[in-house]
């Protein structure tokens, strides 16, 4: 459309979804760059894990370098989803930012699509950073073919955690409560998945933990990084991940309120 602001011609058409997402995405990204503390924390925490565990002794005790790489990516993506994303959505909802956007002609779904798209892009960038740092610090031989494979699994992981985060902001309204529960959930699945999968809490807990979101993702990650074979459990873990996305995503969309009141 021509630049019509100066003229008297009134635009009577709503923007296309692509144009609306483009405008929203640019704005969301600018907001992200200007409130970067949560983003820096999300990137620094996996890098910190890699730095402290770079000695071969530590790597051996912690389950090997592919496990540490998986752990670092999972830590970063969990932090991005359950802390950064939930807080941003809850805060914008409380401020009335979403309600202001909803009275424009842009299709409503594009508002949330832009938020999710931004998270996915940041998740992929974070994974890329962790891969590069891992190859340097843990001396993992990451081949050219490993990059797209890892990015694809990171995408799946990002969607699983974003679906959980979306269900959190769907079920809870207050930004303070979302922040508190988000921090709790950040630690809980991480510890359940990690400690459970490692087997230190016993076999029963191990068989439960390997079906948790973190447990399934770690199984897929490790198989993709050729530490373990792609077997029936890995295929079922992949199915479980899609199940988590559908169930939590449904809850997040069904119960989400644009207004905090």
């Amino acid at each position: 459309m021509a630049d019509t602001y100066q003229g008297r011609i009134q635009p009577r058409s709503a923007p296309s979804p692509i144009k609306a997402i483009k405008s929203l995405f640019v704005a969301d990204f600018l907001v992200l760059t200007k409130s970067s503390r949560a983003l820096i924390a999300a990137i620094m925490s996996p890098v910190y894990v890699l730095v402290i565990s770079r000695s071969s002794k530590a790597q051996a005790k912690l389950g090997g370098s592919p496990f540490l790489l998986t752990l670092s990516v999972t830590l970063g993506l969990l932090s991005l989803s359950l802390i950064s994303y939930t807080l941003m959505v809850a805060r914008d909802r409380e401020r009335g930012v979403f309600q202001r956007l909803r009275v424009t002609p842009a299709p409503t779904w594009t508002i949330m699509a832009s938020c999710i798209l931004k998270q996915v892009v940041v998740s992929e960038v974070l994974t890329e950073i962790v891969l590069i740092v891992s190859s340097q610090l843990l001396h993992i031989n990451i081949t050219f073919a490993d990059y797209p494979k890892t990015m694809l699994i990171a995408l799946l992981e990002a969607f699983v955690f974003l679906a959980i985060a979306q269900s959190l902001v769907g079920l809870l309204k207050s930004a303070t409560t979302v922040s508190a529960v988000g921090s709790f959930l950040f630690a809980t699945p991480l510890l359940t998945g990690l400690l459970g999968v490692s087997g230190v809490l016993g076999e029963t807990f191990q068989s439960f933990a390997k079906w948790t979101p973190v447990g399934t993702i770690m199984a897929i990650f490790q198989a993709a990084l050729s530490q373990t074979q792609w077997d029936e459990h890995t295929s079922l873990a992949l199915l479980a991940c899609f199940g988590y996305i559908v169930v939590f995503g449904f809850i997040g969309v069904r119960y989400f309120k644009w207004d905090a009141r």
Partner: peptide, 28 residues
């Protein structure tokens, strides 16, 4: 609306650009 707000982190020219796009205007 009284109870709504804009993204606090954006400059006002960025906000005008954003909302121009949402109203299908290409503002230079």
């Amino acid at each position: 609306l009284q109870s709504t707000s804009f993204q606090a982190e954006l400059s006002i020219s960025q906000l005008v650009k954003l909302y121009g796009g949402l109203y299908n205007l290409d503002l230079s």
